[in-house]
Nucleic acid binder design. Structure first.
Lengths: 344, 344
DNA sequence: AACGTCGATGGTAGCGCTACCATGACGGGC
DNA sequence: GCCCGTCATGGTAGCGCTACCATCGACGTT
């Protein structure tokens, strides 16, 4: 060993705040490890030592380097949240709730947009796994076997959300899309609808709701369900145009189940423009209970999903795992609720 | 030194995939540093060596640990994006564009929700800075001197967005909210409005637009502008109720400038319910050009902001900085555009 | 033939933190 | 009075990677 300390000066590396735990320790007159404890397990120190360290931290404006901490402890305190796209308002509430819950617990959220294709998902996955997050939360259940394998192999807690499966990779918190479809079918049939149609996004989960809906109305002998499929993301315009198209082919349509509130609002708009009475001649049901649903005219009947609860539960799962607490039930069904309003 | 290698077995640390660069190197019959180069600067290796390493990587399913890499290189390839709340659709487009741009360049986005208060912002900031991101992108310009100081001291590139200031902390890309207000005022005055009102969120930037609007109509001698202030986040319902309240006090109102498209849609809804002709008796202007604006009935006149361009430019700023490229202009004005449609 | 140049690869020493074990001081039980 | 447990603190050795410099041939030049 040629010389003990001038390494810092010699090396041309980019210096961050340039302040390390050792600097703070020197200033406080304690060892580095004591500073580490002051930050992580303050209850282990005497009040006096703690105060000394705290003062040194305040004086210097030291902010601990969590990258180094993460490497040393194998706990990055980073959680990856994967959504198809952030632009769709559906998951927003969930992402918000998760971000808050994690933030409070000292974790940071890494956002990943997987798109709606599995290949992009796989590429993203390596970028994510490379960061060694303490957990990964994905939207929807993962189907690609390759993705499932990689996720399993990485040994990182995984929470699948917004859907349900008896065989999650690890944990799942959501609700049954099929049951949503069934319930809405029942709701409309009870109100006398005999010619219901559907306006649906072409993604997997919307498809499940569609299937449930179709199965539900079939029980009452309605075997043909006119459907309009629109590419994600769903928009008000798509809702308008889809309703127009459906009415063209089926003028006797007496209900539509839309796979998003925004499309339902479009259906409402189109109906208003055409002078079609809602719910008198046409009933409209949305999905999501977005914050505009209750104030639409007529107020929108829709399916309420507690996105906040999903986000919080998913976050709790990850945090429990990270802290080493055992998980009781790996599958959590948070259900849904049909909110009856004026439109249906 | 008691023994050289059994550290791994001895230590009870949580093992990730448990696979390191050294393992891959051994398998490929090269040194660890060569594996590092194969991953980061493949052009430095002969095709043959590269192939050998690649094969070993593929065989093992090795995913490099970027936490360790980040510590060693002082480049985390993490970028923090701070928004008041993800639940507001305004910044969504921007966040999406940034996430994509960063993802392509090998960076990951950390999401932070600052709320609309500065204290929460400060707490969040330490959590963020501790992760030593290669850049921080904030929504709006930062005003708290303490926040500005900390951000400056951290030596991390900072991009302020969705607003403009001649004195950014570092870089800024946005547009002038005051000019938006002025332009909308001019637009409405040209069309004969003499009794314009405003429905506005109570946040800083909406306030700037409000001031610009008020100043603009004042030039034409209109000195009183009825205003309804609503707390963020803005909703369709708030728009409806605000218009109702304004009309109560000012039945002769002939225009409203809403601080979000969603509130404008609410104003449109309320007007329709009351049988008020838009734009005949009342003109309505929104802000944001959300994807429903063009398909509303009547189609919504609004202010278009290119959120994608803002996101991309902000990302480019951070990446340029991280790669050490010089920045020419630190202030970028991306402007805005009034989109004339049927509602005004 | 001697020399410098360049391109491919390797060795060494950390990045800033935490896990693990060691140490020393103190107090209580016998 | 001795031993042991407990508590506060410290020392050492990495976590897995990359920066930096060294090395070693293979060339081209004069």
């Amino acid at each position: 060993m040629p010389e003990p300390s001038p390494s810092r000066a010699r090396r041309g590396r980019r210096r961050g705040a340039g302040l390390t735990l050792t600097d703070v320790a020197r200033l406080a007159g304690v060892s580095p490890i004591t500073v580490s404890r002051a930050l992580n397990t303050p209850e282990q120190l005497t009040a006096e030592t703690l105060a000394r360290v705290r003062e040194a931290v305040a004086r210097t404006g030291y902010v601990p380097n969590r990258v180094a901490g993460g490497l040393a402890s194998s706990r990055s305190r980073l959680v990856a949240v994967l959504v198809p796209t952030i632009a769709s308002p559906v998951f927003l509430e969930t992402v918000q709730a998760m971000t808050e819950a994690f933030s409070e617990a000292g974790y940071q959220v890494m956002l990943g947009q997987s798109g709606y294709g599995t290949e992009r998902e796989e590429a993203l996955l390596d970028a994510i796994i490379g960061r060694r997050p303490d957990g990964i939360i994905v939207t929807g259940i993962m189907h690609s076997p390759e993705v499932r394998r990689r996720l399993g192999a990485a040994g990182i807690p995984v929470v699948e959300t917004w859907d349900l499966t008896p065989t999650p990779i690890d944990m799942v918190v959501g609700f049954s899309h099929e049951k949503v479809g069934l319930s809405v079918a029942e709701y409309l049939l009870t109100r006398g609808c005999r010619k219901p149609g559907i306006i649906s996004a072409d993604d997997l989960r919307a498809g499940l709701r569609r299937e449930g809906f179709t199965a539900g109305v079939a029980r009452a002998g309605v075997n043909e369900v006119p459907a309009a499929l629109v590419p994600t993301p769903t928009t008000l315009g798509a809702g308008r145009r889809s309703l127009a198209a459906l009415l063209e082919r089926h003028p006797d349509l007496d209900a539509v189940f839309c796979s998003s509130d925004m499309m339902a609002l479009g259906a409402l708009t189109e109906a208003a423009v055409r002078g079609i009475d809602v719910p008198g001649r046409l009933r409209v049901v949305g999905f999501g209970d977005n914050n505009f649903a209750a104030d639409a005219s007529p107020a929108l009947t829709t399916v309420r999903i507690d996105g906040t609860a999903i986000g919080r539960k998913a976050a709790a799962f990850v945090i429990d795992r990270a802290e080493g607490r055992p998980i009781e039930h790996h599958v959590v069904d948070l259900g849904f609720q049909i909110v009856p309003r004026a439109s249906a």
